[in-house]
Amino acid sequence: MARSSWATVWVALATVPLALTAGCGTDEDQAPRDDAETRPSADPRALPGLPDVDSAREQLAALTVAEPASMDGYSRDRFPHWSTEDGCTVRQQVLQRDGEDVRVDDDCQPTSGTWVSPYDNVTVTEAGEVDIDHMVPLANAWRSGADEWNDDEREEFANDLTRPQLLAASARSNRAKGDQGPEAWTPEAEEFHCDYGRAWTAVKHHYDLTVTDAEGDKLGEMLDTCG
């Protein structure tokens, strides 16, 4: 995770007579407008909080290597999602962030747009057919340390928009990935392996989650693709 640059988008918006709000909610003081508005889009491969390669290598070296913990007590309900902020759910925010020419209604729900899944380069044109993937799957996190967190901490992890933990992906690729680590599943799009390795490492490092030997080795291989 070619898109139009932010500068181009804002120049285009400047020519529109009615100002568009930057937030997710509606502005009652605005003049009447259509029930949808266009949101500026970013490159879905430009994940937030993605470390540079050297930093990722340092983070990988600092991770604790351990065998996976038991799945006893695991449930997706132990990771509450999706949270809502300013009238938009986290899912809706990721759809807006990762899509191109995304239009939303007054409830912040995308009504049109285009999403290119970085896992397999599949283009999706219906928001309902886009999955929001947890880079480090919830079950994987449970097995690597999240079983000891409280539910508030797990909710923060499951809704993290600050780090490279959430991205829009095709349903096919997301479901093929499941809860597997990079030692068992890697994106079909090889050009995304560098970012995938950096993102996975960054999330595990920030949340002090463990990795297995095989997982760590595979992450190192993925970082080697960065050049």
Rank of each mutant, 00 (worst) to 15 (best):
A2S: 14
S4N: 04
W6T: 06
V9G: 07
V9C: 07
P17E: 13
P17Y: 10
L20N: 08
L20V: 13
T21H: 12
C24E: 08
G25L: 02
D29T: 11
R39G: 03
S41I: 00
A42E: 07
A46G: 05
A46N: 05
L47C: 07
L47S: 12
L50H: 04
L50R: 00
L50G: 04
P51I: 07
P51T: 09
D52G: 09
D52W: 09
V53Y: 02
Q59N: 10
Q59P: 06
Q59T: 01
Q59Y: 03
A62K: 11
L63M: 06
T64Q: 13
E67W: 00
A69F: 08
A69E: 15
D72R: 15
D72C: 12
G73M: 11
G73E: 08
S75R: 14
R76S: 14
H81Q: 12
W82G: 11
E85K: 15
D86Q: 08
G87P: 04
C88T: 02
T89N: 11
V90C: 04
V90A: 12
R91P: 10
R97W: 11
G99R: 01
V102Q: 00
R103W: 08
V104M: 01
V104I: 14
C108H: 02
Q109S: 12
P110Q: 00
P110F: 01
S112E: 09
G113R: 00
W115D: 00
V116H: 01
V116T: 14
S117C: 10
P118Q: 00
D120N: 11
N121H: 08
V122C: 06
E126Q: 12
E126N: 12
G128P: 12
E129L: 09
I132A: 06
D133N: 15
P137A: 15
L138E: 05
W142S: 11
R143D: 03
R143N: 02
S144Q: 14
G145W: 05
D147E: 15
E148F: 01
E148V: 08
W149R: 07
D152R: 13
D152F: 11
N159D: 10
D160G: 10
L166H: 06
L167R: 02
L167G: 00
L167T: 01
A168Y: 08
A168L: 09
A169L: 08
A171V: 13
R172G: 13
S173F: 03
N174Y: 05
R175Q: 15
R175A: 07
D179K: 05
D179A: 15
P182V: 03
P182W: 00
W185E: 06
P187D: 04
P187S: 03
P187H: 02
E188R: 14
E188W: 10
A189L: 04
A189Y: 05
F192C: 05
C194D: 08
R198G: 04
A199C: 13
T201L: 01
A202L: 01
A202F: 00
V203Q: 02
H205V: 02
Y207M: 10
Y207V: 04
D213P: 05
E215A: 03
D217M: 09
D217C: 07
K218W: 05
T225A: 12
C226I: 12
